[in-house]
């Protein structure tokens, strides 16, 4: 008698939770940096020290100093604040405007659906960064305008996710049962549809959050994000550009900060998706 273990696909549980934990840890680091910067930084970021400029990383300045002698570590900590704020608010704008629009389109169908989704297509049709540049160019650069520019592009993303998921739920028998119980479309959307698509929205939220961090960095890089003297990761990269030959740390540390925070948020989003939906087995 032989004992056979069926060669199935490797159990995915361990791998998924590893991604989730790594993502959560990196995101936690990001948030911790923001919180820390509110109460303490190694040096005040406004302090210029022309004598100590362009110092390589050392015990006194872990990440070195820039061409004005400012402490790079302190600037990264404070810059995280800006990235986080812009990304959170932008994702929030998308969530708060996009999800109700998507639910409305799914519940009403017909002309309402067409109107909502075609205007979404219109926004999607523009290259997002280009339009963000246009918005900030017209309205003037600054963190607030960056938030608006990035947030507008999050609206159709959330609207589509919400509508697609809601449409599949509208065919369920429990929605029919709610209609037989005399509930209207608004109440059903609120009580039955929204809670059942919440996990999808959380996952999408994490992903849009990471894209917000990236977009904010891109806008700051071209000078349309937060304005000096507020430190920002994108502008630190821009300023490091000409000095990269002899002060590479100026580019490396903000670059690494962007990569790690975006990576962390993406891993967190993926991990959450696997956690919420164990049936979604992508290893098969």
């Amino acid at each position: 008698m032989s004992e056979t273990t069926i060669p199935g696909p490797a159990t995915r549980g361990g791998r998924a939770s590893a991604a989730l934990w790594l993502g959560a840890a990196l995101t936690g680091l990001f948030v911790a940096a923001v919180l820390l910067s509110l109460v303490w930084t190694p040096y005040p970021v406004a302090d210029l020290d022309m004598a100590g400029r362009l110092r390589a990383p050392s015990a006194a300045h872990w990440f070195g100093t820039d061409h004005f002698g400012r402490d790079v570590l302190s600037m990264i900590l404070v810059g995280a604040r800006n990235s986080l704020a812009v990304a959170v608010v932008a994702a929030g704008v998308g969530l708060l405007v996009g999800v109700p629009l998507g639910l409305l389109a799914a519940a009403k169908g017909g002309l309402t659906d067409e109107l909502v989704m075609r205007s979404n297509d219109l926004i999607f049709a523009f290259p997002s960064l280009l339009l963000a540049i246009m918005i900030t160019a017209v309205a003037g650069p600054g963190a607030i305008n960056a938030v608006i520019a990035i947030g507008v592009f999050n609206i159709p993303v959330f609207a589509r996710v919400a509508r697609g998921a809601a449409l599949s739920l509208w065919t369920r028998d429990y929605v029919l049962a709610a209609r037989v119980a005399g509930k209207g479309k608004g109440l059903i959307s609120l009580q039955h549809i929204l809670p059942n698509i919440a996990n999808l929205l959380i996952v999408q939220g994490a992903i849009q959050f990471s894209m917000g961090v990236l977009a904010e960095a891109a806008l700051s890089y071209v000078g349309l994000g937060a304005q000096p003297p507020t430190p920002s990761w994108g502008r630190m990269l821009n300023e490091a550009q000409t000095l990269i030959g002899f002060a590479p740390w100026l580019a490396i540390f903000p670059g690494v900060a962007i990569v790690l925070s975006v990576l962390g948020l993406n891993l967190l989003g993926d991990g959450l998706r696997d956690l919420f939906d164990p049936k979604l087995d992508r290893s098969r």
Partner: peptide, 8 residues
């Protein structure tokens, strides 16, 4: 048979 199953 499903993954993780042991058969004899």
């Amino acid at each position: 048979s499903p993954p993780g199953a042991t058969m004899s």
